[in-house]
Write a protein that binds this DNA or RNA. Sequence first.
DNA 1: CGCGACGTTGATTTGCCTCAACGATTGTGG
DNA 2: CCACAATCGTTGAGGCAAATCAACGTCGCG
Lengths: 194, 194
Amino acid sequence: MAHQILKENIAKHVSFPEKELSLFCNSFYPVQLAKKDFLLKQGDICSFEGFVTKGCLRVYTLDAMGNEYILHFAIKDWWITDIDSFTNQTSSHLSIQALEASEVLLINKNEKEALYQQSPNVEKLFRIMTQKTHVALQRRIIRDHSLTADDRYLYFINTYPKIAQRLTNIQLAAYLGISHEFVSKIRRKISQQK
Amino acid sequence: MAHQILKENIAKHVSFPEKELSLFCNSFYPVQLAKKDFLLKQGDICSFEGFVTKGCLRVYTLDAMGNEYILHFAIKDWWITDIDSFTNQTSSHLSIQALEASEVLLINKNEKEALYQQSPNVEKLFRIMTQKTHVALQRRIIRDHSLTADDRYLYFINTYPKIAQRLTNIQLAAYLGISHEFVSKIRRKISQQK
DNA sequence: CGCGACGTTGATTTGCCTCAACGATTGTGG
DNA sequence: CCACAATCGTTGAGGCAAATCAACGTCGCG
């Protein structure tokens, strides 16, 4: 079931011969997470590349003052890892935590490297996925520079309504880079306009 | 000469057999650019992946109001493309322009695809480079959210002194996401502190 | 030379933050 | 299952970082 979601996700990116696709997907093992469980803690080394099949997680970092900055959320059909820590086996700058009971499929570094050897399609898959994320990150930087807090809020809830639904104002604020009080004021302003 | 710079750059990312490396590098052709020349214009389709061997360029986008947002600069040893437009052959959101007389080495999409077929090392090279950029973009988003304009300015000139040297306040402002007047005020504040 | 692009500076405004208080909602241990 | 704590959301007052606007000086270039 969970593996089926993964298969369909991969098919969106590249076309794989069914045999390779199954081999690839079967290298992933499921992990159940309770609310507030950590998949990765800042400072640890990220041993996995993950795919969410249920629930919701956040990927974030804390600065020296304890302020929290959320890089992104991940619900069903999203990939999660600290790509830097994972590929270089260095201490992670990021934490990944379940915001609710969640299920993820994980693959270890050794397994992934082995698959790279076995199938050029795997290398291609990850190159393409990384490219897509790259484009998304570039666009987010532009949005952060060009839009007001109000418009970034609206962009997020319109673009990711299924994620926005599940978040507290505090979490959304830590993603948008604004205070949670101001999120509250934006919501009021918008509801009055209607 | 220019190709030598490219070879050394690639060697920083992955180890290639010399023969493959030469084959790869020879697929790039040099292009000379005068100051203000465009390598890519917003709306066009990006046909190349490029590597700068001389000069300085900027990668930027204009919004509907004509405001300019600079994604990054590129001097010697930097790669440039619109990865979205290039890989998907879609209309580009970005422009790339020479800020001074520059030289770049370009490779076309067809050539690059051919190389992907010939050598798995090429696929790996681009996956690794894209991953590195990915990490850099993530960190930039965090910096944009966590640092004041003063600190982002300082970070940039300390991290990229060779680039900062060549830029006008206006260009730097369009990169940092602040007004050029404020850049001027930051500079004054810093010089007074010393 | 004269023009246009750039840099500087000050006055004013504004978007968003901080702090504080309070109500509502959720979670939890007895 | 309830009581109480903890977390979250709302609101207002006041403050600050940075934008905007405007004026002016400088420099490089056709």
